[in-house]
Structure formats: structure tokens, C-alpha cells
Design a protein around this nucleic acid. Structure first.
Length: 244
DNA sequence: AATGATTTCAACCGCAAACAA
DNA sequence: ATTGTTTGCGGTTGAAATCAT
């Protein structure tokens, strides 16, 4: 027996939301707050599944949604973040106040993706006589497979210093393992200054770490244990990184 | 003005992590 | 530790809007 569907499709409205449905959802969220999406259809009488309610709220009804065209600055930021993070739309959206992951994803798929592709220099035919080392840097997104949700990676205080390493040095997979493997960080060392950072380990290995600028780009100082803001949506970057 | 092609974007789907019992 | 439920994410779809002929 497989998973039960997220909600029964019978008797549910589908397709575009009506203004009445929007109002019911707004009223419900204003009264009860976000979350508990599953309960919304039961408690509000909306004929929509919880998942649909969540999506509608996050992508359209939230009061802090920014409407209107994406500015050049935002566009530039998206391109940079996408280069660093790949198709991690929610992470990217977290850096663009008022923009949703869906909006950014759509914008990328319809506009930016094409632009960026068009900008890329024509691929040179590799000279077979010249052996080039296998590149570690994977350009842009991780199209192979779905990105799994990030798992917490503990970075010990000592590891902050990685940023001071010779940036010409190419981090290796084993280095990355050191960073991401708890075994490499004795629990006694995981003190109050250690903190969790959301990373996908595989991606860390594949591209983030291989970017020699990566550690310069992350701003770790000032994040305290228990700081709930250090989460998926709160990636810390320096202004330097975001502005080249 | 009509029609077919293309683009846009809101909504849906399935999967996997997180959470609860 | 296990199992079932809920939430969040990224990929995809399809209707509506826009453009080209």
C-alpha cells in the first residue's frame, strides 16, 4: 500500500482561486496564523487541500509579497545566487524580500535562464592532445536529480578559519567530509559557538566547496546558537560576494 | 480580423524531510 | 525504533495572455 494522497480530490475545488476563497484563506491565516495547513479545509470550510492553501498563501496572498517586475538588481542577485546554489529556489527567494520561490523559478525558466545561456561563450572544442584535469566546479545548477532537503551541517569554530586559507587551494572531497561529517568534529568541540548551517552535503561537495571563493562569501560571525534565524531561508553572504 | 505559435505564470504533482504518536 | 502524517520543495503542466503572420 502506497502513501495516502495528501488530500482527497473529491469535492475539492481546483484551478484558479476565486476572490471569495482568497478572503476565506486570508481570514483564517489572520486569525490562526500560518501553519496547520491541513486543518484549513476542515476549519474554514474551504474546498481546497491544505497544500493548495499553503501555496496560495505563500505565493500570492501574503501581505509582504512584492508585486511588479523584477528589478535589474534583483535579476543580478538571482543570477549570482543561482550560480552558487543551483535550483534552490527557496534559498534564493530567501535573499529576495517579498519574492517567492515560485516567482523566481518561473522568472528563471522563462527569462533569466535563456539570458544566461545566451551570455555564455560558445563552448570551445577541447583539444584532445591537451589533458585537462577533471573540473571540479560544476557550472550552475544541479540538474541531475532533485535536491534533497538540506540537513544540518555543523561547522566548528576552527573551521571558520578556512576562509583565511589560500584561496587558490582547491578544497578536496575529504576536506568537505571533514566539514560535514560529525565524526570529524568531536561532540565536545561542538560548543555554544558551533552552529548549524543548512547545506546539502552532496552539493557542498560538488560545487560550493570547490568554489575557492565560497568561504569568503559566507558570513558566519555573529550567529549564536539557538538563533532560529539560521535556517534554510537565512543564508548569510557578504555584500562583497553579492556585488562581485 | 482571424488564427496559429509562443510566452507567462498560477497551480498541481510527487517526493522526501521533519515531525508526532 | 518504528510507523504514519504533515510540511516544504522543485519540477511540470496547462490555461490565459501576447505576439506574429
Amino acid at each position: 500500500m502506497g502513501r495516502s494522497p495528501c488530500c482527497s480530490k473529491e469535492g475539492q475545488n481546483r484551478g484558479a482561486w476565486t476572490s471569495l476563497e482568497d478572503q476565506i484563506l486570508i481570514d483564517y491565516v489572520e486569525t490562526h496564523g500560518e501553519g496547520r495547513w491541513r486543518n484549513i479545509p476542515k476549519e474554514s470550510g474551504l474546498k481546497r487541500c491544505g497544500k493548495s492553501c499553503r501555496l496560495r498563501w505563500l505565493n500570492y496572498l501574503r501581505p509582504d509579497i512584492k508585486r511588479g517586475n523584477i528589478t535589474l538588481e534583483e535579476e543580478d542577485l538571482i543570477v549570482r545566487l543561482h550560480r552558487l546554489l543551483g535550483n534552490r529556489w527557496s534559498l534564493i527567494a530567501g535573499r529576495l524580500p517579498g519574492r517567492t520561490d515560485n516567482e523566481i523559478k518561473n522568472y528563471w525558466n522563462t527569462t533569466l535562464g535563456k539570458k544566461v545561456k545566451g551570455q555564455q561563450p560558445k563552448e570551445k572544442k577541447p583539444n584532445p592532445s591537451v589533458k585537462t584535469p577533471t573540473p571540479i566546479v560544476v557550472e550552475s545548477s544541479f540538474t541531475g536529480g532533485k535536491a534533497s532537503r538540506c540537513t544540518k551541517v555543523l561547522v566548528s569554530p576552527q573551521l571558520h578559519k578556512v576562509g583565511k586559507l589560500d584561496t587558490s587551494m582547491t578544497p578536496t572531497a575529504s576536506m568537505a567530509k571533514c566539514l560535514v561529517n560529525n565524526a570529524a568534529i568531536p561532540s565536545s568541540e561542538i560548543d555554544s559557538k558551533s552552529f548549524g548551517v543548512d547545506f546539502d552535503v552532496e552539493e557542498l561537495l560538488m560545487s560550493d566547496l570547490s568554489d575557492s571563493n565560497f568561504w569568503k562569501l559566507c558570513q558566519f560571525d555573529g550567529i549564536e546558537e539557538g538563533d532560529k534565524s539560521v535556517g534554510t531561508k537565512d543564508f548569510w553572504f557578504t555584500e562583497e560576494m553579492l556585488t562581485d
